[in-house]
Design a protein around this nucleic acid. Sequence first.
DNA 1: CGACAGCGGTGAAACGTTTCACTCAGGCGA
DNA 2: TCGCCTGAGTGAAACGTTTCACCGCTGTCG
Lengths: 347, 347
Amino acid sequence: MSTGGSNRKTTGEVSIKDVAHRAGVSIGTVSNALNRPDRVSADTRSRVRAVIDELGYVRSESARQLRSGDSRMVALLVLDIGNPFFVAMSRGAERAAREHGLGVMMCHSAQDSEAESLYLSMFAEQRVRGVLVTPADTTGANLLAFRRHGIPYVFVDRVVDSDDACSVSVDDVAGGELAVRHLVENGHERVAYISGPPNLAQCTDRLVGARRAIEAGGLGPESLTVLETAKLDVASGRDAGARLLGLRPRPTAVFCANDLLALGLLQAMFDAGVRVPEDVALVGYDDIEFAAAAAVPLTSVRQPAERMGSTAAELLLGETEGDPAHEHESVIYSPELIVRRSTLPRR
Amino acid sequence: MSTGGSNRKTTGEVSIKDVAHRAGVSIGTVSNALNRPDRVSADTRSRVRAVIDELGYVRSESARQLRSGDSRMVALLVLDIGNPFFVAMSRGAERAAREHGLGVMMCHSAQDSEAESLYLSMFAEQRVRGVLVTPADTTGANLLAFRRHGIPYVFVDRVVDSDDACSVSVDDVAGGELAVRHLVENGHERVAYISGPPNLAQCTDRLVGARRAIEAGGLGPESLTVLETAKLDVASGRDAGARLLGLRPRPTAVFCANDLLALGLLQAMFDAGVRVPEDVALVGYDDIEFAAAAAVPLTSVRQPAERMGSTAAELLLGETEGDPAHEHESVIYSPELIVRRSTLPRR
DNA sequence: CGACAGCGGTGAAACGTTTCACTCAGGCGA
DNA sequence: TCGCCTGAGTGAAACGTTTCACCGCTGTCG
């Protein structure tokens, strides 16, 4: 009775009820045909499927999630979507998530704590399955506040001290050490470190490693000059390059906290007629694809970005799906130095 | 009665009901305090807000969407998230969406029609507010099928003939013409066009423009050699470079369908000891940030990527929010040639 | 023959919101 | 005083699913 087949709404308004009615079965049976096909006779199942196709029925994810209480979405919050390193990471995460039938929602905080907080609130409203996050502030206040929602999260590219969550990272201290040791071994005695924002753990950790290498090379702390930048992008790199050129005495080698900075700095050197590596040696970090294609191919510290993303996703899913006796885990990968022309020995 | 305040669940299980109960008002009032603050006395309003903070209540987006029927999410489906051009585009889209209080869900089809179809189904299940899409197949079959869901979409970086939807694009024919005319004017008579997959409209349109420039320069069609690649990425560029080197007579200029291809090709030339621009001139497309920082700074055709993204989002929102008498609109931007060292005149 | 298990299916109760038709006081003009 | 309006708040119905207790039927086993 009532709403017959005549009042076809404009579009897309067909619900499971319509399917059930048309297939001559109950709503529950349609739901079962969709979610537990084995509990439904082959006959009914195919009939239901046919009606679904005919009517163009599409299950409403909101209703599903509301009732069943579990989300099919994972959030990924990175510092900078313009950085190919994070893009590679997200690719890994997405692949892993897809293998579990989950979607990934990718966002970037632009290294801004407030934006990060906003996104986290949004994730909470969505009741996402979990969050993969590269935190934008070292205080961890945002994540601490987020914790109360009971949504699991995994730190990526950030080793975490507390035992609130899993984490996947690369040993940044080792990476910084690797880079600067290489420079010192090449005979450099005045090195500059182009740090990003000092509130990013990655940046400060790499600095620690750099200092360690300086010391191990028998040089004094004055051998390392630190230049901070507001962001970790190409423009900041250019800016840092300009500042570097003003330094007296000018460092003979530069270690940048990431490849974007290095590329920007390289441009600044070019524009000023300073030769790389003859006048200034240059090391980047992340080994993004464009580092090898740069004006002067960049020596860089490689991180297994894609792998980090997939591992993080696996960790997250392991935490949400499986055993209640989940133990938080910290996976730490080792960085690798890729030597290219930008640090060719001077002599 | 029944569930008193004693049985506090583990976390995050607090619903609007709990808030209402604790604040001593009805559920509807809480909802009003949240969504139409003006219909609630200042007194009650602040009391409700206080309880919300106290209990850590977070509204369930699924329930909201289910009941109200409108989504706060926009989907963005691009060809390749590894391409900085699309990243810039997404940044523009996100900014515009945020200004309207919407979130953006970013995905990439990897230029694969099947993946595209999968994502579109997912968007339909989510009942997203709308979709910004750079289609992966020229047939348009996926989008045609998607149309029945009644979810509006806007084409980005793709001019569309039909009047199903709005579109934002750049005149690719003009862009191709711009690039190749520049080469012809520099005296090149044997030009190669490194196309991407021939099923991408961008690629074929740029080819049309290239042919036009060849003809306008008084050259015969045999002056233009076309090499297709499977993808529009750096690896494909390297591969195309290898094939280019086998050509006899070898073209003296190359126009690549995008900068990633050009960067890959540049690497291949380097490895083979072929000089750019002396032996081979090179033009890319998109003018991504890394084009200027390449081994040889790339001449490239610039598109207003970020602007395209924001415009597309605006168009979409105009379609969903406003007037029912919405007229589909096609915004077409003009490309701009940025000349750099990779096409320095040979003599 | 009776008990019982399994299969295929039903109906209704949730899930957490928004929305809408109401009620209830209090104030105001006639 | 009466009627009416307005502002603040209520209660219940929907939204489209999933899930769960239950039901009737058909064999099967002892």
